[in-house]
Design a protein around this nucleic acid. Sequence first.
DNA 1: GCCCTGACTGCTA
DNA 2: TTAGCAGCCAGGG
Length: 121
Amino acid sequence: MKPNFFERVYLVVKRIPRGKVASYGQIAALLGHPQAARTVGWALHALASEPATDVPWQRVINHAGRITIARAGLDAAFQRHLLEEEGVEFDARGDVDMERFGWEGMDWAEVEALWRETGNE
DNA sequence: GCCCTGACTGCTA
DNA sequence: TTAGCAGCCAGGG
């Protein structure tokens, strides 16, 4: 039994290294659903209600390298601050250069290994 | 079990 | 280059 979609989103996000960012679509693709970007965003939204989380949600932004959490009533400036603390740079428009800071992702084999690590296989 | 919502994405005008 | 629109997926009520 695999962990549910939310759990899988969190597991993948936790694998994003410090100083790197990934897009919602990228996370969704790793989960086997390239079109489920909206669902990934929703999963992270749900995460916001859990202050004690150890999931680096701030490392997930949209495919254009732009922070869009303001749509969820959250603080985009705070997210930007967290990323800058990790070494991620923003340009004059407030966007992240995905060519420089974009996460390359992981192999499907690694993703499957994550499911096994959770003991839910 | 159905309908609605949502931190997105890609295409078209 | 920018704005608008439809598609997609999963969870909550």
